[in-house]
Design a protein around this nucleic acid. Structure first.
Length: 224
DNA sequence: TGCCAGGCCGGGT
DNA sequence: ACCCGGCATGGC
């Protein structure tokens, strides 16, 4: 089976094993943006606490965030970890939004997919994964979001080399999947959920993987 | 108790 | 073009 076919078959196996995840867990596009920045190298549970604090303080709003001094914002998001640098990163995004788009997220999201990605990526503190999460889950435009779990899982299933770059992995996925926003959202969400449960950094190769029964039935016979 | 979490930046080779 | 230290809280 060629790698491109594996990419599609693996999605089917994940969806069958875990069901739809319905990501991103947020109520508004701005909340997605904030969550994407706060979850950088951080447990989502801690991010939830920080977002609760922001809600309570009425800070899920571009103008309110723009007025907030970074030192005070940092205290509010403290449970998310790296709180001083993340406060600065949130401010950097909001400053771009106000400066270039009048503080209007819809105006930013009206850009073409590639322009939007570039604009968001230009903010200091927003790298490729955070940018793509914003493009896909906040703006609803078709890109594949790559993260640590994606690389680890695809590598363990023989679809990429250990030294594959972000761009390598993103191209592999995008070149072999339809331009379907719903599917792209679901695929990334499934990879994160399976990764959280049983594909941690120190875990043995796919030990106890719930996909194993499906694999043994020959449904995805190439996987290990 | 230590290791890990849905990265990214800036300075040094 | 890579490589590495720093950033920080809370869960298991």
């Amino acid at each position: 089976m060629r790698t491109g076919e594996k990419v599609r078959a693996f999605y089917d196996a994940l969806l069958k094993a875990y069901g739809p995840q319905g990501w991103w867990p947020a109520e508004t596009p701005l909340e997605v943006v904030i969550g994407a920045i706060l979850t950088q190298n951080t447990n989502w549970k801690n991010v939830e606490r920080a977002i609760e604090n922001l809600k309570r303080e009425g800070l899920l709003d571009p103008q309110a965030l723009a007025r907030m001094p970074p030192e005070r914002l940092a205290e509010v998001i403290r449970p998310a970890g790296y709180y001083r640098i993340k406060a600065r990163r949130l401010k950097n995004f909001i400053e771009m939004l106000v400066r270039d788009f009048g503080g209007d997220l819809d105006a930013l999201f009206a850009l073409s997919t590639s322009r939007l990605r570039e604009a968001v990526l230009a903010v200091s503190g927003i790298g490729p994964e955070t940018a793509d999460s914003i493009v896909l889950y906040a703006a609803g435009k078709p890109v594949f979001v790559v993260d640590a779990y994606t690389a680890r899982i695809l590598c363990r299933h023989g679809m990429i080399e250990a030294d594959a770059t972000y761009e390598d992995i993103q191209s592999l996925m995008q070149d072999n999947l339809p331009d379907d926003v719903g599917m792209l959202k679901e695929y990334h969400a499934l990879l994160v959920e399976v990764g959280k449960r049983q594909c941690r950094k120190a875990a043995p190769l796919c030990a106890g993987c719930p996909l194993q029964p499906l694999l043994e039935q020959g449904r995805v016979a190439w996987a290990t």
